[in-house]
Amino acid sequence: MSEIILRTEHLCKNFGGLKATDDVSLEFERGKVHAILGPNGAGKTTLINLLSGELLPSSGRILFKGYDITDARPEKVSRIGIGRSFQKTNILPGFSCLQNCWIGAQSCLITSMRFFRPAKHLRMVHRRADHALQLCGLSNKRNQIAGTMSYGEQRQLEIAMMLATEPELLLLDEPLAGMGTEESQQVTALLKELAKEQTLILIEHDMDAVFSLADRITVMVDGAELETGSVEQIRNSQAVQDAYLGHDEEDAA
């Protein structure tokens, strides 16, 4: 078995009386795509928010490459190499594409508390920002104001901003949410490309995309882990079908 890059131990998060995350202990392997499935309200986004430091857990631990990052805040989590994208498009709408990625890329500086030389002169930042745009197929939009782009392009930019920080581990919160078929295919292709070299933790509703991308799948119900296994295992699991697959189709209908 290959290296475990991220591990959660008995992770819990309570909001008042509600257990949004209930004793979740998971292991994520380096170089794999690990998808997290679950019906609405299963606590998938809460889990991502815990991993990325947006929320602090009520109890349990999070270990990244063996280091305890349970109490780390978002900026710390990002700095040690975990990037995240948001489910609700979370870009800087008044900035150009390049400027959006620039902010991500500039975080490679030990500190941005640099007051004298113009940022433009930082070649490395430039290269990283350009690279991220290129990966996401936005190179030709680099000077367009992000807020004026199509929804699909904004979703791609969302991912590009994260890539510009050059993370070791990518947390993707429903990257396909709200996309049309064509846009969806584009982003799926992008994720496949990323999966070749990167470690991805992917929350996604789109089953086909998940089954075609993921190496391992965890199914969550009511904040707790129901089952974790390979695509085949999950596809054939009776418990999962009872709890989720059938359920979801009813919802969709």
Partner: peptide
């Protein structure tokens, strides 16, 4: 114009996102 200013202006636009990109806003 320096890196510092870029971060400031981004904070004004969307502080949460700037934090998630690794800046102690």
């Amino acid at each position: 114009r320096a890196p510092f200013g870029h971060v400031l202006i981004a904070i004004k636009a969307n502080e949460q996102r700037v934090r998630a990109l690794g800046y102690s806003t």
